[in-house]
Amino acid sequence: MTIDPLALAAILAMAAVTYLTRIAGFFAAGRIRLSGRAKAAFDAIPPAVLVAVIAPTVLATGWQETVAAVVTAAAATRLPLLATVGVGVAAVVALRQFS
């Protein structure tokens, strides 16, 4: 049971900003009216961040990861989340046999 001071600071600060996003909407209720392009841009934040985090693995690691990501994306269109992860992991393990 150890905790690094910097890790603790990161966890507490992440918790604080996350709590702020949780309460801000309830207090701003009735005052936020996004529409059109502004709403599209706001709705795009989660996928934009998710893709930004994994793009180096998908596009700049090796062909195995790139192909496995395409297979995973195809699986994601018809399978639930956990099965999608299973397909992706199986694909990368199989493809890495060829390296």
Binding site: P46, L50, I54, T72, T77, V85, G88, V92
Partner: peptide, 29 residues
């Protein structure tokens, strides 16, 4: 690779057609 696969699955959950395609392409590149 489980991270990457999970994030692909989560991203698919936000899919809204053309706007999502632009989001994913812009962010990835």
């Amino acid at each position: 690779f489980a991270f990457t696969a999970m994030f692909i699955g989560l991203t698919a959950g936000f899919w809204k057609g053309r706007v999502s395609a632009a989001t994913i392409a812009g962010s990835a590149v």
